[in-house]
């Protein structure tokens, strides 16, 4: 892995991105804006799944309208995030907060996949209920916790040197 990352860091694209102050800044800004779209809408979905927000709107409607928006933001996050990783692959790979962020992203993806596979069909049945079933609420709670942890880990990436190095 180390040799692969060293090779990646020495490619002209990586050096160019790393040295271009403005390019990196643009990527970071796009990353944060997409984060507000992706996690901001995911937050509304999870609050509805928990049954604490916009209860008067059917769960299936919230999901069908907001999930594409959230996934769109997620795609932009992934592209900008990969490019930022490409700009400094060794530093990012060695960063504990970055690793934690990626691990939690995987967990969030599993949570969404599991929910869509198992509980999504049941959201049609619970549309008119004031409080969704326990499993649906659990999925919403897990999602909310993971998104908060992902934001925190991402924000703390620059502080690795102060805390651990």
């Amino acid at each position: 892995m180390a040799s692969l990352l060293e090779w990646l860091a020495l490619t002209s694209g990586s050096i160019l991105l790393h040295q271009s102050h403005y390019m990196y800044l643009i990527l970071l800004t796009v990353h944060v804006l997409a984060l507000t779209v992706c996690i901001g809408t995911a937050l509304i979905i999870d609050l509805r799944l928990l049954g604490v927000f916009i209860r008067y709107i059917p769960t299936s409607m919230v999901l069908s309208r907001l999930l594409p928006l959230s996934l769109g933001g997620f795609l932009i996050i992934m592209v900008s995030g990969l490019l930022m990783f490409y700009a400094s692959p060794i530093d990012k790979y060695n960063n504990l907060f970055f690793r934690a962020k990626i691990a939690m992203l995987f967990l969030a993806a599993i949570n969404i996949w599991f929910f869509l596979k198992t509980d999504y069909s049941s959201t049609n049945k619970c549309n008119q209920e004031t409080l969704p079933p326990k499993r649906v609420r659990f999925s919403g709670g897990v999602g909310l916790t993971l998104w908060a942890a992902i934001i925190a880990a991402g924000r703390l990436i620059p502080y690795q040197q102060y805390w651990f190095d």
Binding site: V32, L33, L35, T36, V37, I39, G40, T41, A42, L43, I44, I57, M61, V62, R65, L66, P68, L69, W147, A148, I151, A152, R155, L156
Partner: peptide, 30 residues
């Protein structure tokens, strides 16, 4: 700073959903 970003993300969701539905964007709640 982390909690500051939490605030921004909450606003982001509210603005995207609230204002896009005002624009009648089909992906929002209308």
């Amino acid at each position: 700073a982390t909690f500051h970003l939490f605030g921004l993300v909450i606003i982001g969701g509210a603005v995207i959903v609230g204002d896009l539905q005002l624009l009648n964007y089909k992906a929002t709640l209308q």
